[in-house]
Simulated assay, not measured.
Amino acid sequence: MVGGAPEPGFPSVAAIVPVSPFCGEAEAAAPVLCTGTLVSPRVVLTAAHCVENADAPQVFSVVFAEETARASAAQRIRVAEGRPHPAWRPGVNDIGVLLLAEDAPVTPLALELGALSSDSVGRMARVVGFGSDAQGAMGRRLGGLSRITSVNADTFSIEAAPAMSCGGDSGGPVFVSQDGVEQLAGITSFGDLLCTTGTNTRVDVHAAFVQAAIEDAARRPPARAPMDPRVDACAQRCVTHADCPLGMACVAQSEDIRSCAVAGLEAGRFGDVCTGEQEGHPCVKAADTCRLWLPCAETPPAAGGCAVVDGAPGLFAWVFVLLARRRVGAERSRRV
C-alpha cells in the first residue's frame, strides 16, 4: 500500500503468507503473498490468483495481526483448502476463497454487498492490505483512500488519492460508502507496476460464489488429518491436495501414480530425525519433529529414524509464488 497509513481497524483483514517446509525457517520471516478478508469463521475471501491450485501446491497461513512479524501462534491459522472461482483466468473472475483448518481468532466482516453503478465514478474507495509501502516494506496492515475512475460489468478501476494497492495487497478488500456505511465492494486484482492505478473484482457480481463457500464451510468444515511421519508417504495415494494430511500436497510420483508429499517438494518419505540438511536431503517439518525427506526410490533408514509402515489409503497481478525443492522463494512482482 503506497500513500497509506497504519490501519488499526479492520481486524478481519489478514495477511496470507507461505509456510516453509524446511526446519529452521521461522514463520515470522515469511513474506506476504496476498491479503484476504475473513467473511465467516473459516472462510477468507481473496483473489483467485492468490489461491493454491493443483499445479502449484503450497501451504499457507493466514495471519490475523496488525504486523505479521509480531503475530502470535494463535494468530496464525493454517489453510486447509483453496478454491479459485471455477471460471477464473488471469484478469477475469479473479476471486477465490481460502478455507481455514480452524476458526479464526477474530470476528468475520459483516458481508453487506452494495451494487456499484456508473454513478460511483469519482467517489472515494478505501483500500486495505499488507503489501509493499513506498519504501518496499511489507507485513503491516495499511489503509488509505483511492478514487473510482470506471465501473465495468465485473470490475472497477481506481486511482491513487493518495493511497493505492501494491505488491502483496492482491486479494485485499476495497470498501465503498453506501448510504453512509462502508461496504465491501471489491477485492484487489491487478494494477500498474508503479502502483498508481488498480483494477478490482466486484464482489457483488460474485455474491453467489462467496455465499456457497460460506455455507459449505458451515456444513462441513474442511478437515485434514495431521501429518504423521511414521507413515510411508510414498504409499499415500491421492487425487487432490485435500486427500493428504495438513501440510502435504498431492504430487506426481510417476506417470500414473500420485502420492502425498511435503508441500513444495517432490514425492518422498520421511527419514531420520535431523537438525539440518544431510547428504543433499532437506530437513523438513514433520508434525512436531524435523526429519530428512528422502526420494521414494531410496530405501528408508533401517534404524535410528521413524518406523515406516504402509500408508492408507495477460494482465499484471501482484503476487506469484514458486516453491522449489530446496528453498521457498517468493517472487513479489506482478505477473502476466
Score class of each variant (00 low, 15 high):
2 V>L: 04
5 A>T: 15
7 E>H: 09
9 G>K: 07
18 P>E: 01
19 V>S: 03
23 C>D: 00
25 E>I: 13
26 A>G: 11
26 A>I: 10
27 E>T: 14
31 P>L: 08
38 L>C: 13
39 V>D: 08
45 L>E: 01
48 A>M: 03
63 V>S: 06
63 V>L: 04
69 A>P: 10
72 S>Y: 11
72 S>V: 12
72 S>W: 11
75 Q>L: 09
75 Q>E: 15
75 Q>Y: 11
76 R>F: 10
86 P>W: 05
87 A>L: 15
88 W>Y: 08
93 N>V: 07
95 I>S: 04
98 L>C: 07
103 D>E: 15
109 L>I: 05
109 L>S: 06
112 E>A: 14
113 L>Y: 07
115 A>D: 14
118 S>L: 14
121 V>K: 06
128 V>H: 04
129 G>P: 03
137 A>K: 14
137 A>I: 10
140 R>H: 05
141 R>Q: 05
142 L>P: 07
143 G>P: 04
144 G>Y: 02
145 L>T: 14
153 A>I: 04
169 D>K: 02
170 S>T: 08
170 S>N: 08
175 F>E: 05
178 Q>I: 12
178 Q>F: 15
183 Q>K: 11
183 Q>P: 07
192 D>R: 00
192 D>W: 00
194 L>V: 01
196 T>I: 00
200 N>W: 03
200 N>F: 05
218 A>K: 08
219 R>L: 15
220 R>F: 12
225 A>T: 11
225 A>I: 11
233 A>S: 13
241 H>I: 08
242 A>I: 09
245 P>S: 05
247 G>K: 01
251 V>D: 00
256 D>E: 10
262 V>S: 06
262 V>T: 06
263 A>L: 01
264 G>W: 01
266 E>H: 13
270 F>W: 02
281 H>P: 04
289 T>P: 08
293 W>S: 09
297 A>H: 13
297 A>D: 12
303 A>D: 14
305 G>F: 03
305 G>W: 03
318 W>P: 09
321 V>K: 12
329 G>F: 12
330 A>Y: 13
332 R>E: 09
334 R>M: 07
